[in-house]
Computed example of a mutant assay.
Amino acid sequence: MSGKNPALPIKDHRFLIVGGASLVGSTTADEFLRRGAKEVVLLDNFSFGSKDAIKHLEGNPRVRVVQGDVMRLHELLKAFEGVDGVLHLAAMMTISMDRDPWAGLDVNIRGAQNVIEAARTNGVKKLVFASSNAVYGYGPGVAGDLVESTPFNSVGAPPAAILYGASKIVGEQLCRDAYRRYGLDYVVLRYSTVYGERQHYRAANALYIIETHDRIKAGERPRVIGDGSESKHFVYVGDVARANAAAFEAKATDVQVNVSGPAPTTTLELVQMVCEATGSDLKPEHVEPPAGKVRLTSGGAFKIDHTAAGKAIGWKPEVDMREGIRRLIEWRDETGA
């Protein structure tokens, strides 16, 4: 144990979100502010983060935006001064890893180490590391209930997906090592596929939702890959923001837990929910997987179990897939996103 109380209340404390100008970062900033954070610092290099995602926070006296890069330790050391808690979100995802694996590994591994070093040097009280269900791998061996002890599977999956999952495993172990060496309290949250308002086009599975919506808006039939029985497990971004806050406020440390939605859904069900949310009567067409495109698949029906998160940080999801998609579609229609 670290020898101190690892619980860090959001109220009256200062938090820094690495990768703050993102879907999860901007929504978590809203949650921290709602819970009474003294200050929320949003650090981003804006290579993937969007200033539009945090536009609604402009002028808020409790919000500070810092342009910085996880590959530049000196920038992190300065930004982390006086911060109580750090949420590390910045990472290259599978699609980016496919385009430039070397850069992806640098950002996801060396970047994580830089964040840990800056947190340790500045006496940060707690680090929350955003990991992924990708630590369980992809391919034929991934099926059934995925729990925190499920081993990594790499057989039959695209290299980019395996590189991404492996980079997250390394990031988790760097957190464990910093706890062992220096007593840096941390919680690892293994997100399933995050979706919701301010959705971007970079997450391979979440992309399926907005591409379906784009086709329907264009008057084209939505596409279902294969027979539509393939399982996906999503989690609504507002639930993720609550999990981030809960991880800081809980007494838990040196743990890794899944953060997933209430239940998995099939790709056919997903397309039908998007049609329902848009009021479309277009019938989906079944197509073969597109050649050359990164797809993240499992070996069969699976569920990412979040029971451990309830025990460790007192969290469970509240928004089901149908309601989450309704909110996402409503936001896209209202904003023209």
Rank of each mutant, 00 (worst) to 15 (best):
S260V: 05
R295T: 14
S50P: 04
W102R: 15
F15S: 03
C275E: 09
E31K: 12
T253G: 03
V142W: 02
P290N: 13
G144P: 00
R180F: 14
S132W: 03
A178T: 05
G171R: 02
G219V: 11
G299C: 07
V188W: 01
V107K: 00
G324W: 00
Y208D: 04
G144F: 07
R326A: 15
A309F: 05
M71C: 11
Q199E: 14
W102M: 14
L282V: 11
L76G: 05
T193I: 12
E197G: 03
V86Y: 02
T297E: 05
V128P: 00
K4G: 04
D30L: 12
R322T: 13
E323L: 13
P159C: 12
H74P: 03
A291E: 15
S298M: 06
G196F: 06
Y186A: 01
V86E: 05
G261D: 03
V70T: 13
T28I: 11
V287S: 13
G299Y: 06
D254F: 13
I17W: 01
N60S: 09
V170L: 14
G299K: 01
T278I: 09
A250M: 08
K55N: 13
A308I: 08
V124I: 15
R295L: 15
R202Q: 13
L43Q: 05
G59T: 14
T94W: 05
D281H: 13
A204Y: 08
P222C: 10
G336R: 08
G196D: 06
I209P: 00
G68L: 08
P61L: 12
I17T: 06
T150Y: 09
S26Q: 04
W315L: 07
A252I: 04
T193P: 00
A160Y: 03
R215C: 12
D30K: 10
G165H: 05
G261W: 02
Y136L: 04
F234M: 07
R223T: 12
L76I: 11
